[in-house]
């Protein structure tokens, strides 16, 4: 068990090193040199050369990469040219905002998808299954910007009971909670259907396994067959998929944040990218990868706990 964990941690470090190098080189070698990006189009050639010299940008990329790694590890994420401040001053707040959004959405998606997925999958082709399946296909196939606009039209324009933007500023008279409703709803609608379908598919397969027949012919009630024998088996396959939703919820919500003007991580990345703010892009990408790798490890670990065939092999 400890060996497994140590190995996974080693993979994490290795992945982070490889990915960070790729991120660094890509963002350093995008068209236009760094000094020019910082100084803007109206700076003279001389100014650009001076800054290049000053920042050490004319030295080999490997040396600069390791310097950057050293800085990052010591907590210095660089200076954002877009926000005109240290990246540290901006990224944590943005991450925090996104985390709020993501954790509320996740807290809804997980129990709801498991419940609906299992209820649908335990009686394949029943009316309930058909209803849930169709509903989940519909909600998943509507893109976020469409459902965002659609929900805004109902609740903001027509009913007028929710704010149209979620800037987390209570000055306009809308509470923080009310500002969170629509972005969370859009994320849940978009993601829930997909996860329900994964859980349902797994449940349908489990229900056809001979051990379910064994449980029924043992004289167990249907409820016990589902709860004691089916659910845990049905959770093994979708578990990793469910955890992967964290990636989407934290780092993939650019559209939702843009639609609702939400001051989160996704919008920060978008703004950073549009203004070629290298420090923001590098730090943001690093966090995104870190979240992906960590959820992957948690996923593997949980998978192992759920599945004794892996645990004792």
């Amino acid at each position: 068990m400890i060996g497994f964990f140590a190995k996974r941690l080693a993979y994490l470090v290795f992945t982070m090193l490889v990915v960070s190098f790729i991120i660094y080189t890509i963002s350093e070698f995008t068209p236009g040199d760094v000094a020019r990006k910082i100084l803007g189009p109206f700076a003279t050639k001389n100014q650009v050369e001076l800054l290049t010299e000053e920042m050490g940008l004319n030295r080999p990329v490997f040396i600069r990469y390791f310097e950057w790694v050293g800085q990052t590890l010591s907590g210095d994420l660089g200076y954002s040219t877009r926000y005109k401040t240290e990246v540290n001053n901006i990224i944590w707040g943005r991450l925090y905002n996104t985390m709020i959004l993501a954790s509320i959405a996740f807290a809804i998606i997980v129990p709801a998808s498991i419940l609906f997925g299992i209820v649908a999958g335990m009686a394949e082709a029943s009316k309930l299954d058909r209803t849930i399946s169709v509903a989940s296909i519909v909600t998943t196939s509507v893109p976020e910007f469409a459902s965002g606009v659609f929900l805004s039209w109902i609740f903001v324009i027509w009913l007028g009971i929710l704010p149209g933007t979620s800037t987390l500023d209570t000055g306009a008279g809308w509470s923080i909670a009310s500002q969170l409703v629509l972005p969370v709803a859009v994320m849940v609608l978009y993601d829930l259907g997909y996860v329900i379908r994964m859980v349902r598919a797994s449940m349908v397969e489990v229900m056809m396994r001979p051990y379910i027949r064994t449980a029924v012919l043992k004289g167990l009630r249907f409820r016990e067959v589902i709860l004691k024998h089916a659910v845990r088996n049905a959770m093994i396959a979708p578990f990793t998929v469910i955890l992967l939703q964290i990636n989407y919820l934290v780092t993939g919500v650019v559209v939702v944040e843009a639609v609702f003007a939400y001051p989160g991580f996704g919008r920060m990345m978008l703004e950073g990218a549009l203004s070629q703010d290298i420090a923001i892009i590098e730090a943001g990408a690093l966090f995104a990868v870190l979240i992906a790798v960590v959820t992957q490890i948690v996923g593997d670990f949980g998978y192992m706990l759920l599945n004794p065939r892996i645990r004792f092999s």
Binding site: R209, R213, T214, L217, K218, G219
Partner: peptide
């Protein structure tokens, strides 16, 4: 079922709950 009449199946591996 499972009490007065019970059954032994062809493929024991898949007839037992793996978890």
């Amino acid at each position: 079922r499972g009490n007065k009449m019970s059954m032994v199946y062809q493929d024991p591996m898949s007839s037992l709950n793996p978890v």
